[in-house]
Computed example of a mutant assay.
Amino acid sequence: MKRRSFLVAAALAALPGMALAHGPSRQKISLTTEVAAAPEEVWATIGNFQDMSWHPAVHSSTGEGGNDIDATRLLVLGQEGGPTIAEVLYKYDAAKMTYSYRITDVAVEVLPVTNYSSHLTVTPRDGGGSKIEWKGAFYRGYPNNDPPPELNDEAAIAAVTGVYQAGLDALVAKFGAPGS
């Protein structure tokens, strides 16, 4: 009985140290914007998984499978021959104007994340126009403890936020802000 109590006490004492050594936490962000255009007009621009030409960082987008589950796309960033991001579609609902995708391949020097998934949704805005929500979940680019600054949680959050904000800003520039 004393041995069992000792083992339980030893296991409980080790728990705080184990909690510190578990590695990174999944990060989540969600950005929204509102535009003057009707949801159907916005969806016509962003609803095709194969075409991400609306995003200013994307030089070209090619893929296979259209908007079917497991469709793939390869984004070339910046300019011809630029860095790439490979993605796969895992949810698509045209009626609800939403889709979800995952990154299957990206260098952490390009986007400092791992295990990244994202959701893009267009909904009607009260008073007319549309609300666009882009949310994602991911881990930092460095999976172990003590990451270098360019691969830590803050760098991952800043990079994904920058991608989302640039895309949303481009949509506001294209469709106009409500009331403008």
Rank of each mutant, 00 (worst) to 15 (best):
Thr98Ile: 15
Leu120Gln: 09
His22Lys: 15
Asn145Glu: 14
Glu41Gln: 14
Thr33Met: 06
Ala9Trp: 00
Gly129His: 01
Gln50Leu: 12
Tyr101Ala: 09
Tyr99Met: 13
Gly167Lys: 06
Gly23Trp: 01
Gly66Asn: 01
Arg73Tyr: 03
Ala37Met: 04
Lys2Gly: 11
Glu34Arg: 14
Pro83Phe: 07
Ala170Val: 05
Asn144Trp: 12
Val35Met: 09
Pro178His: 07
Ala137Met: 09
Arg125Tyr: 05
Ser61Glu: 06
Met1Ala: 14
Ser60His: 03
Glu34Tyr: 12
Asn145Val: 14
Glu41Thr: 15
Val110Thr: 13
Glu40Asp: 15
Glu133Asp: 13
Glu40Pro: 03
Ile103Cys: 05
Pro24Leu: 09
Asn115Val: 12
Arg3Ser: 11
Tyr142Asp: 09
Phe138Gln: 00
Ala36Ser: 13
Ser60Thr: 08
Glu41Arg: 11
Pro24Thr: 00
Trp43Tyr: 07
Ser100Thr: 11
Pro112Thr: 01
Leu168Thr: 05
Ala19Thr: 08
Val42Ile: 04
Thr72Leu: 10
Met52Gln: 14
Glu87Asn: 07
Lys2Thr: 08
Tyr90His: 15
Ala86Met: 10
Arg73Asn: 03
Tyr142Trp: 12
Ser61Trp: 04
Ile85Cys: 08
Val88Gln: 13
Glu154Ser: 05
Val122Glu: 02
Asp70Cys: 14
Thr84Asp: 06
Gly65Lys: 05
